[in-house]
Design a protein around this nucleic acid. Structure first.
Length: 420
RNA sequence: GCGUCGGUGGCGGAGUGGUCAAUCGCAACAGACUGUAAAUCUGUCGCCCUAUGGGCUACGUAGGUUCGAAUCCUACCCGACGCA
């Protein structure tokens, strides 16, 4: 992997190119998520036609099914899923949060209001807490929203963290699995993505300072072990280190410095944020990271947050938003989100956006899409997601051009004024 | 014509004397969704109000029994089925 930084604006936004064995990524780039080597509801060819440059798959999920050996035998994740462009894989670290966060009663990764520190909910995550009884059978799992169920559970966690790694229960069948920095890297080598991530611990927005310190100590140790295993295995893949630190500026800076000191090909910024200060946190972190290596912002993808990240010097961002929103009946437009399910659109025969060049807008009306959503036709998922993927790709294209033209801030202001 | 069963909120369909403005599902409406346990989840869903409470109108229609009825009785209207 090579990174060419073409330009950095005075305020910090950057434009450039990441060159991988599977093609060039024009940055800033949005990276749609295809967790199980599949966009939910969208063929890879359609995602590509919608302007997607690079995609994001998940180690934990592919390890569980079909298993990295199958993917390797298929010729790697690119061939397996028929995506010839660049691919990133997550390390599985996020599952520490997202599965463990069953206790979190639907807590979002991005806190939009001041979270009540309810540390009791996740004290069982601490190393040294009781072993197996912390891992519930899958039958007792709650979903985000099943708050009562989770609260009434003895512990409510699907994960157990210790200094060596993490025990998970598979959400598929309840079986027990373990990931360590070494196994995560080994799996990612078998999967064969162009850019892979160090194994980290992603904490929740509620995690207090003292717990973040503990988690950072592990993430730092795991970063070194991930790097060592990656170097031992060799190959062309690029390994990114991950900066954590939650919502605490001092810890963000400390994590950024510690990670920057290691020989990573690039960096990813993860963990939980307060929505209002995503930009500030990223700026703080990027001030510590070497400018000649790419920076990825993990899991951030609402429009205004993308702007905040890019403004603060991020080169790539991944998020499930375009596909999840599309799947749930919401499409992005320059005038804000549009809920397709509304029967108000029943006789609206215009496309989602008149000037949109995406496959959906070129061929289908709001009325038809609304009908598909209300009829729960699978096609609604596909068509809405395609539009959203295209919307994101176009947004990033506009951002890149604006940076080149020295009008990024104006572009951001104008875009958000119309969108929000 | 006789008989049987049945008529409940936009629809389907519970409930068969009080805790019923009425379970539940669908539809409708609103909201959520940020390294995907998510083709998902949450809320509202008779009308009105000085609204974690109060009032009004409601279970085919009209009467009746009862302290009290969607629930029991009578008549009528309508529907399905059976027998003629």
């Amino acid at each position: 992997m090579k990174f060419k930084l073409e330009k950095t604006t005075k305020t910090g936004a950057r434009v450039g190119q990441i060159t991988t064995a599977h093609g060039v990524i024009e940055t800033p780039a949005f990276v749609p998520v295809a967790t199980q080597a599949a966009f939910k509801g969208v063929p890879p060819e359609a995602a590509k036609a919608a302007g997607t440059q690079v995609i994001f798959a998940n180690t934990f999920h592919l390890h569980l099914s079909p298993g990295e050996k199958v993917v390797k035998a298929a010729g790697g994740v690119h061939k397996f899923m028929n995506w010839s462009g660049p691919i990133m894989t997550d390390s599985g670290g996020f599952q520490v949060f997202s599965l463990g966060a069953a206790y979190g009663q639907g807590v979002s990764k991005v806190a939009t209001s001041k979270p009540e520190a309810d540390f009791r909910r996740f004290t069982h995550l601490l190393a040294g807490s009781d072993a197996d009884e912390n891992l519930l059978p899958v039958s007792s799992l709650g979903r985000a929203g099943d708050a009562e169920k989770n609260i009434s559970s003895p512990s409510g966690s699907l994960v157990k963290i210790d200094d060596d790694g993490v025990d998970f229960r598979s959400p598929r069948d309840g079986s027990l699995h373990r990931l360590t920095p070494e196994s995560s890297i080994a799996i990612q080598h078998d999967l064969g993505a162009d850019i892979i991530l160090a194994f980290d611990e992603c904490t929740t927005p509620q995690a207090p300072h003292e717990y973040q310190v503990e988690a950072l100590r592990r993430t730092d140790a795991w970063a070194k072990r991930s790097l060592a295993e990656h170097e031992r295995l060799g190959g062309e893949q690029a390994l990114y280190g991950i900066v954590q630190g939650g919502r605490f500026p001092d810890l963000r800076t400390a994590s950024a410095r510690a990670t920057a000191a290691l020989n990573f090909a690039g960096f990813a910024i993860g963990g939980s944020f307060n929505k209002e200060d995503i930009g500030a946190v990223v700026e703080l972190v990027n001030a510590e990271l070497p400018p000649d290596r790419p920076r990825h912002l993990l899991g951030i993808g609402e429009i205004e947050d993308i702007f905040a990240g890019v403004a603060a010097g991020v080169d790539t961002l991944d998020c499930v938003t375009p596909t999840r929103l599309g799947r749930h009946g919401t499409v992005e437009t320059k005038a804000g989100r549009l809920n397709l399910i509304s029967s108000k659109l029943a006789s609206d025969f215009a496309p989602i956006e008149a000037d949109c060049q995406c496959h959906t807008c070129q061929n289908y009306s709001r009325a038809y899409l609304s009908h598909l959503c209300r009829s729960r036709e699978m096609l609604s998922t596909t068509l809405a997601s395609i539009h959203n993927l295209h919307f994101y790709a176009e947004l990033m294209k506009g951002i890149r051009q604006a940076i080149r033209d020295d009008r990024f801030t104006d572009f951001q202001t104008d875009f958000l004024e119309s969108y929000l």
